[in-house]
C-alpha cells in the first residue's frame, strides 16, 4: 500500500472522530511515512500495520481515556459520547460490520432462549405446586378411604415435584447470571491486558 492509499483509508476509518483529532493523526502519519524514507512501491503496512489497525489504536485509546475521565469524575455526563466511541471501536475492530451485527443478534437470541427455558421451568414449578396443593385438599372429598389415600398421595407427589422444579429454576438462574458476569469480566480483563501490553 502506498502513502496516498494508506492515508486515504486512515482518513476514512477515522471519519467519525472529531475533525481536529482526525487531521492531527493524518498529519502525524503523513510525516511519519515521509520520515520512514522507504523506496517507492514499498508496502507501508509492513511498518505501521494496516490503516484499520492504526485507526483502531487511535479510537480505542480515545475511548479508554474518556472512560478513565468518567471514572475520575464519577458522573454520567458524556456517557452518550462514550457509547458512541465504543460503537465506533466495535466497527473499527477487525470483525466486519455485518459479522458484528450478526454476532450481537445471535448472543441476544441465545439470551432470550435461555431466559425462556428458565421462565418455563419456573412457571411449571408454580403450576405443579398449586395443582398439587389443590389435589391434596380435594382428596378429603373422595368417596372411600382407598381413593382418599391415592389422591392425597398423588397430590403430595405433584407438589413435591413442583418444589423441585422451583429449586432447579433458581439454580439455573444463578448459574446463568454467574456465567454471563464471568464472561463479561474476562472480556474486560482481556481488553485491559491487551491495552497494557501496548505493542
Amino acid at each position: 500500500m502506498d502513502k496516498q492509499t494508506f492515508l486515504q483509508e486512515l482518513d476514512y476509518r477515522l471519519r467519525h472522530m472529531p475533525e481536529e483529532d482526525k487531521l492531527d493523526a493524518i498529519e502525524y502519519y503523513s510525516e511519519y511515512i515521509d520520515d520512514l524514507n522507504l523506496p517507492p512501491d514499498s508496502d507501508i503496512c509492513i511498518h505501521l500495520g494496516s490503516p484499520k489497525e492504526v485507526a483502531r489504536q487511535i479510537i480505542s485509546d480515545t475511548t479508554e481515556k474518556k472512560i478513565d475521565e468518567q471514572q475520575e469524575k464519577k458522573t454520567t455526563k458524556g456517557f452518550g459520547s462514550i457509547l458512541w466511541l465504543a460503537i465506533l471501536g466495535i466497527f473499527a475492530s477487525p470483525i466486519a460490520l455485518p459479522l458484528a451485527i450478526a454476532a450481537i443478534a445471535i448472543i441476544f437470541a441465545g439470551l432470550i432462549t435461555v431466559g425462556s427455558v428458565v421462565f418455563a421451568f419456573g412457571v411449571s414449578g408454580v403450576a405443579c405446586v398449586i395443582s398439587g396443593f389443590l389435589t391434596t385438599i380435594a382428596a378429603f372429598t373422595a368417596a372411600d378411604f382407598a381413593s382418599k389415600l391415592a389422591i392425597l398421595g398423588s397430590g403430595l407427589l405433584v407438589m413435591g415435584l413442583g418444589i423441585l422444579f422451583l429449586l432447579l429454576t433458581a439454580a439455573m438462574a444463578r448459574c446463568i447470571v454467574s456465567l454471563v458476569s464471568s464472561i463479561i469480566k474476562k472480556r474486560i480483563m482481556k481488553n485491559k491486558a491487551r491495552k497494557a501490553q501496548v505493542a
Binding site: Y28, Y32, V54, Q57, I58, A199
Partner: peptide, 13 residues
C-alpha cells in the same frame, strides 16, 4: 518491544 504505531495515541494524549 512496541510497534511503530504505538506512540501516536500516547503523544496525542
Amino acid at each position: 518491544d512496541i510497534s511503530e504505531s504505538t506512540l501516536y495515541p500516547v503523544l496525542r494524549r
